[in-house]
Structure formats: structure tokens, C-alpha cells
């Protein structure tokens, strides 16, 4: 599904990713753990195509297709989704309108017609209910006046609505209490299937108690330095990142 080969990327001339390689097959959940400053968020932004990062080497392939030259919206249409660590507030743009525009933009890029208004509302109601999000929240502007937990639930709602093939979750657990964490994790788990893959980026093991990964990678100083099974997360929780340089 997602293959990253020897990826080098820098920002303002400073190299952050220093030859990162990763291969996530269909239907698998991979976790990346690592200390602060190891380049985890940079990796998520580079995958999503954020401006300001210079990729100096390597490749990112989605279903075998090189996505490096694609705009962020084209990557989304190709099936990529990034759940933001800090979801962005967009004053004046209502949630419902935003979601509908996003869905239709993706459909348009795929050469499909617009979603039926009723189908859209039905789908939205269902996903809202699963994540405990009220109709009132859907009338509000995107993330404006949302609590930290509501913002993270909103990321999962968007993911559920857009149905990506490859989702990257950047520190989705940060700022969540245990109840909110469960709601978010349940939301992600409902989306797991044999075709859809996830890359879960986190600092702590806590999230991985609820979203069980197939593979755990340790990232340090811009590279994957160790790969193992779920037991690796538990081990890190005990030993910390002391053995890994940032």
C-alpha cells in the first residue's frame, strides 16, 4: 500500500528525514514511535504533501504510484488521509459544507458525480452517532470552539466520511483523556479492514493499547532504527527512548 524508500527531507536547509524506509502492506496497522524531535510530524507532513518541505531524495509510493509530484488534494483523491496533531480552525466554513465539499472534490477528481444530498446526510448522521458528535457541532465552523477531544473526534469523523485507503494518524492521542481516547480508537478500529492501512504516529504506548498495531517501528534522528511486533511498544514504555538519539 504505502512504500517509503530512503526518504530524505529538509526544512529551511536543515535535514530532518535522513533516509527513512517503510513498507506498509494492505490492511496492516503500523505504528511509529519515537522521541520528540525525531522527525515524526515531518514525516506525516511530507507524506501529505505540505509546502515548505524539500524532499532531497527517495520516493513515496502509494499503490506503486509515486506521489511526490502530486498536490495534497491529489493525494487525498488517491486515497491518502492525514489526521492532524493540531487540527486547524476555519472560521466561517461550516462543518457540513466543508465535508460535502471535500467529498465532492474527491469524487470529481476520480471522475465520479456529486454525492446525493440525502445519501450524504444519512452517512454523516451515522458516523456522527458512532463518534458521539451532535448536529449542533456540524453547524459550527470547522474546529472553531471545539475542545481538544472534539477536534480529535472530528479528525476521525472526516476520515470515516472520506474513507481513505491509507490513513496517517499524527499524535492523535495527544491531549485526550482516557474516555476520549477510547472513542477515537473505536472510531479508528471500526474503519480497519483488509484493504485499508494505517500509520499511527505516537509518542506513547497508551494509544496502541486500543489500536493494536501489526508492526511497531522506532524512529530516531530521521530514520527507522528498529522494527518489531506489538511487544516492542511495551518494551519502549518500560525503557523509554534513552537508548535512541533524537
Amino acid at each position: 500500500m504505502l512504500q517509503i524508500k530512503n526518504l530524505h527531507a529538509s526544512i529551511d536547509g536543515k535535514e530532518i528525514l535522513k533516509g527513512l524506509t517503510l513498507d506498509i502492506p494492505d490492511g496492516q496497522v503500523h505504528a511509529i514511535m519515537g522521541p520528540n524531535g525525531s522527525g515524526k510530524s515531518t514525516l506525516s507532513y511530507v507524506i501529505a504533501g505540505r509546502e515548505g518541505y524539500e524532499v532531497t531524495g527517495g520516493q513515496i509510493l502509494l499503490d506503486g504510484q509515486d506521489i511526490m509530484e502530486m498536490a495534497p488534494e491529489e493525494r487525498a483523491a488517491a486515497g491518502l488521509f492525514l489526521a492532524f496533531q493540531y487540527p486547524v480552525e476555519i472560521p466561517g466554513v461550516a462543518m457540513t459544507m466543508f465535508l460535502k465539499t471535500a467529498i465532492n472534490s474527491i469524487r470529481k477528481q476520480r471522475g465520479e458525480g456529486e454525492i446525493d444530498a440525502l445519501d450524504f446526510l444519512k452517512l454523516l448522521k451515522k458516523k456522527q452517532a458512532e463518534l458521539g458528535m451532535s448536529d449542533e457541532m456540524m453547524k459550527r465552523a470547522v474546529n472553531v470552539g471545539f475542545s481538544g477531544g472534539e477536534k480529535k473526534r472530528n479528525e476521525v469523523l472526516q476520515m470515516a466520511m472520506l474513507e481513505p485507503r491509507m490513513a496517517v494518524l499524527d499524535e492523535t492521542d495527544s491531549g485526550l483523556d482516557i474516555d476520549a481516547l477510547k472513542v477515537v480508537a473505536d472510531g479508528v478500529n471500526r474503519l480497519r479492514n483488509e484493504k485499508r492501512s494505517f500509520l499511527v504516529i505516537t509518542h506513547y504506548q497508551r494509544l496502541l493499547d486500543y489500536i493494536k498495531p501489526d508492526v511497531v517501528h522506532v524512529m530516531a534522528a530521521g530514520k527507522i532504527v528498529k522494527t518489531g511486533g506489538p511487544e516492542l511498544a511495551a518494551e519502549l514504555e518500560k525503557t523509554g527512548y534513552a537508548g535512541y538519539a533524537a
Binding site: E51, A71, P72, A76, L82, I90, A141
Partner: peptide, 27 residues
């Protein structure tokens, strides 16, 4: 730039994302 990238990452093309932000600014 932040909201622009956020919208683009949801599949909304840059031109439409800008238009949405400007409409919101005026509304």
C-alpha cells in the same frame, strides 16, 4: 496557509479552498 493545507489534505483543490476562505472572510 494552515487552513489552506488542511482543506487541500481533505481533497479540496487549492483554488476552491482559497475561494471558501474568501467567502468565509466576506460572509
Amino acid at each position: 496557509q494552515e487552513p489552506l493545507f488542511y482543506m487541500q489534505s481533505r481533497g479540496i483543490d487549492a483554488k476552491s479552498a482559497k475561494a471558501l476562505l474568501i467567502q468565509a472572510f466576506i460572509a
